[in-house]
Design a protein around this nucleic acid. Structure first.
Lengths: 361, 361
DNA sequence: TTTTAGCACTCTACAACCCCGAGTGCTAAA
DNA sequence: TTTAGCACTCGGGGTTGTAGAGTGCTAAAA
C-alpha cells in the first residue's frame, strides 16, 4: 500500500526529529514543527496508522513514536534529502587523502579516520584482492656477504620486501642464480601451487647450502598468504560512546569488541559491487552484533586486482543523509586516486550531489 | 617512617582484596581472611593508622578502605608477589611472537594484542628510531619502460619500497644513472639535509626530464620523515569497559579517545631506558587523562638504532603482579627476537621469574 | 467523510523518603 | 596492647507520590 503524501511527510518528520534528539516524537511536536496545517489529533490518527503499518514503534503506550527499521528504510529510500557538504568538510577529506604519497593501507585507514571524525561514528576500511594473488617478479639485491634484500612485485602491482640475513655468508653469484630460479619457477603461481616439492626442487637446482631458497620461499609464501583480505582498520571506535543508545556499557562493549575483533567478518562487498552506497539498517545486517546498528558502506575498485570497502557503523538512529554524503565524497576521492594514480585534486566545491544507497529488501 | 610487619600484611591484604573485588575492604573481612590472629577492632586501629599515613582512603565515613596511589606504590615496590605465568599464557605469547616472519610494526601490534588479551586491559606499542634516520642504500629496479621500483635501506636496516610510474616512459640506462646519483648524494643524510637545492642539483646532473629524480627524492624524504616515531598501535581498547571503574561512560570515553588520538603523546621511554618494567600509578602519570589510571610499560632496544615501548593501561586498581609478569615475558620475547634476529624459541616453561618495576618517586 | 476538541487514561521519570546493613571510631575493660 | 561493645554515619535499594507527556476514544464540527 502506497503511503499518502501526508503520511510521508509525517514519517519524515518523525525520523528526522528522532535522529536529532534521540527522543520519541509526539504528535504535538509534529503538528507544530512540520508545517502541515492540521491539529495534533489528526497527526495522532496518522501516527496510529503508520504504527500499525510497521513504520513506527512505541516504546510504551504513553510515549511518542520512534521509527522502526522499516521506517528508516522508507526514509532512506524515498524521503531523505541530500546533505550538502560544507567547505570545511570537503577540505578535511581532501587533506586526508591528499597529504602524502601513502601506502594503500595507510591511505585507507586515514580515509576511515577522517570519515569517523566528520560523522562521529566509527569507520572501518579494508582492501582485498579480487582473486588469488600471484607474484609477477622477484628481485634479490646483494647488500653484503651476510645480507640480501628480497623484493617481490605482486600481480596487483604492490611491492613487498624483506631483509634476509645469512650469518654464514652468501655469494653474489648465488644471489643472481636465486633470482633466475625464482623468476622462472615461482612467478604467476598461487599460494596453493607453491608446494614444498617445488621448493625442494629449487634447492636442488641451485645447490643451496645457505638456506637462502627456503628463506626466500617462505617470504613468497607469506606474501601470497597475507595478500588475502587485509585486516580492516577501524577508526574512531570510541565515537560510539558519543551516542545515547550506547550509554549502556554492555551494548557498547559488545559492538566495540565486535568491531575490533571480528570486524574481519564484516561482509565484503557483494559480488555486484555496484558503485553505489549501500545502507544496511538494523536487522538487515547479518551479524548478530549489528542487529541494533546500521552500516553505511561502499565498495570500490582499485583497478589492479584489488577491491576495497569502507564504511561507517552507528546506531540505527543514524544521520543517514550526512553519512552517505561524506562516504560518497570519500569514495569518489579514493576512486580518483586509483584511476589517475595521481593526487586527488578534487575541486572542493561544486561537486555533484552524492547519491544514496540502493534498496535492500 | 617504616611500616610494621603487621601493617604491611594488612596493606597487602587490602590491596589484593580490592584488586580482586573492586569493593572497599572492611576490617572484618581482613580479620577473617588475612590469617593474622587478631580481631577486627585491632585491624581497625591499624587501618586508621594506614589511612592517616596516606596509604589508604575512605570513599565515605562508613565504607571500607581502598588503597591510595601511595598505597599501590608501596604494594608494587615491596609487597607484591611474583605472578607465575601459566603454560597457556606463555604459549599464547609465544604463538603471537613466533608465528611468522613479520614486519616490525605488525610484530609490535601483535605483541600488544596478545598482551591485551591476556591481561584484559588495553595495550599499546610503538617503535621509534633512537636518532634521526638516514638511508644507507638505494636500489632502483627497472621493471618496464613505465615502471620502476625504488628500494631504500635505512640505517636501522629496515627496507622500504615504492612503485614509481612514468606514463611518458623512462630508459633503463637512466635508471642506472639514478641509482648512482642517489647512492652518491642521498645516502647518510638526514631529513634536514635533503634540501630542495640538493634535489635540483641532482636533476641537473642527471639531466632528468621524466620527473624521476623528484619522485625518488620525495620517496626518500617520506621515508626520513616517517621514520620518526611510528604511531602507536593500541589493542583491545574496548577492554577498559570490562572494568567497573569505567561503568561511567564519560570516563571511558575520555580514556578511550585519549588512547586512540593522543596516544602519540604517551611518554616515550625516558633516556635511562633501563631494561626494567616501569609502573606509573594514577597521578604519577603526566597526562591529565591518565591521572585516574595506571600504566605498566617497558621499553626495549631493537639494536639497530630503534627503540620501542610497549605497555598496558588500566585503572589504578590493576592487577600489577599479573600485568608485570605478562609484560615482562613479552618484552623478553621481543628482545630475543631483536638479538638473534631469529624466531624467539623461548622455552615455554622454566623461565626465570619476571622482575618488576623500579621505584618511581 | 474528515478533522478537531476534549477528556480520561497510561506510563515514565524523578524526587522524597525510609530503612537496612556495613563499617566505622571511641571507650572501657581485659 | 588487644578486645568487646556500642552509638553513629552513610550509601544503596525499595517504596511511594507526583508531574508531565502522550495516547486513544468519542462526539461534535466542518
Amino acid at each position: 500500500m502506497e503511503l499518502s503524501e501526508r503520511k510521508k511527510k509525517i514519517l519524515k518528520a518523525v525520523v528526522e526529529s528522532y535522529i536529532e534528539t534521540a527522543e520519541p516524537v509526539g504528535s504535538k511536536a509534529i503538528a507544530e514543527q512540520a508545517g502541515l496545517g492540521v491539529s495534533s489529533a489528526t497527526i495522532r490518527n496518522e501516527l496510529a496508522d503508520l504504527t500499525s503499518m510497521g513504520y513506527l514503534e512505541q516504546p510504551h503506550t504513553s510515549a511518542g513514536r520512534i521509527p522502526s527499521p522499516q521506517g528508516y528504510r522508507i526514509y532512506v529510500n524515498e524521503l531523505m534529502h541530500h546533505h550538502a557538504l560544507s567547505m570545511h568538510e570537503t577540505r578535511e577529506i581532501n587533506n586526508a587523502l591528499n597529504n602524502k604519497v601513502k601506502q594503500l593501507d595507510v591511505l585507507l585507514s586515514e580515509a576511515g579516520a577522517v570519515l569517523s571524525d566528520l560523522t562521529s561514528y566509527p569507520a572501518y576500511a579494508m582492501a582485498a584482492p579480487a582473486g588469488a594473488a600471484t607474484i609477477k617478479r622477484f628481485d634479490f639485491i646483494f647488500v653484503d656477504a651476510h645480507t640480501v634484500i628480497a623484493v617481490a612485485m605482486l600481480d596487483n602491482n604492490s611491492v613487498k620486501n624483506k631483509l634476509m640475513s645469512f650469518p654464514n655468508g652468501i655469494e653474489e653469484q648465488f644471489v643472481q642464480k636465486l633470482s633466475t630460479v625464482f623468476n622462472a619457477n615461482f612467478t604467476n603461481i598461487t599460494e596453493k601451487e607453491l608446494t614444498p616439492e617445488l621448493i625442494a626442487s629449487a634447492e636442488r637446482v641451485t645447490g643451496d647450502l645457505t638456506g637462502a631458497v627456503a628463506a626466500a620461499a617462505s617470504f613468497a609464501l607469506n606474501l601470497l598468504t597475507e595478500a588475502g583480505p587485509s585486516r580492516p582498520s577501524v577508526s574512531g571506535a570510541s565515537h560510539i560512546l558519543d551516542h545515547p543508545e550506547f550509554k549502556d556499557v554492555d551494548k557498547a562493549q559488545k559492538l566495540l569488541s565486535y568491531l575490533s575483533d571480528n570486524g574481519e567478518l564484516m561482509q565484503m562487498p557483494t559480488e555486484n559491487s555496484g558503485s553505489e552506497i549501500r545502507i544496511l539498517i538494523g536487522p538487515e545486517n547479518v551479524a548478530d552484533e549489528l542487529k541494533d546498528s546500521s552500516v553505511v558502506m561502499a565498495s570500490y575498485d582499485l583497478g589492479n586486482n584489488m577491491k576495497g570497502m569502507i564504511g561507517v557503523v552507528g546506531p540505527t538512529r543514524m544521520d543517514y543523509a550526512k553519512v552517505a554524503a561524506h562516504l560518497s565524497y570519500v569514495v569518489r576521492g579514493l576512486r580518483q586516486l586509483a584511476d589517475g594514480g595521481k593526487l586527488p585534486l578534487m575541486p572542493p566545491d561544486l561537486l555533484p550531489a552524492p547519491k544514496e544507497g540502493k534498496d535492500e529488501n
